[in-house]
Amino acid sequence: MAVQPGRNDLKAQSWPMARSAQSLGLAYIGIVNGLFATLRRLDVAEANRLAEAAGMDPGYVRCWCDAAYAFGYLEAEGERFRLSEAGAAMDPQAPETLMPVAVQAMLNMHMAERAAELMRSGARPGEQVMAERATLLPWFGPMLEASFSAFFAETIGPGVPIFAEVDARGGLVVDLGCGNGWYLRALARRFPNLRGVGLDGFAENIAQAQRLAEKDGLGERLRFAPGDAHEFTLDGPADIIAMNRALHHVWEAGGAVFIRRLRDNLRPGGAAVIWEPDWPADRAALRAPARRGFAFQNLTEYVQGNHLLRAEEIAEAFAAEGMQPEIHRFGEGPEAVVVARRAS
Rank of each mutant, 00 (worst) to 15 (best):
Glu214Ala: 14
Gly255Gln: 12
Ala295Gln: 03
Ala288His: 14
His248Leu: 08
Asp264Tyr: 10
Ala253Asn: 14
Met323Gln: 13
Ile314Phe: 09
His230Ser: 11
Ala246Phe: 02
Gly254Ser: 12
Gln304Tyr: 01
Ala253Glu: 13
His249Gly: 08
Arg245Pro: 00
Leu266Glu: 04
Arg223Met: 07
Glu301Asp: 11
Tyr302Pro: 00
His230Cys: 10
Phe330Ala: 07
Ile314Thr: 14
Ala284His: 09
Ile259Trp: 00
Val273Arg: 02
Asp235Tyr: 02
Gln324Ala: 05
Glu301Tyr: 07
Trp279Val: 12
Ala315Ile: 15
Gly255Asp: 10
Thr300Gln: 05
Arg221Val: 03
Leu234Ala: 03
Ile274Ser: 14
Glu220Met: 09
Glu321Cys: 09
Leu286Gln: 07
Asn306Leu: 04
Ala229Ile: 13
Ile241Val: 15
Phe296Ser: 06
Gly293Ile: 00
His249Pro: 01
Trp279Asp: 12
Gln324Pro: 01
Leu266Val: 07
Ala284Thr: 11
Trp279Tyr: 15
Ala242Asp: 15
Glu326Phe: 09
Asp282Gly: 06
Ala225Gly: 02
Arg287Thr: 09
His307Val: 04
Asn265Glu: 01
Glu316Ala: 13
Ala229Glu: 02
Glu214Lys: 15
Ile240Lys: 01
His230Arg: 11
His307Ser: 10
Asp239Lys: 12
Phe318Ala: 14
Ala295Leu: 03
Arg261Val: 01
His328Ala: 11
His307Tyr: 10
Asp235Asn: 07
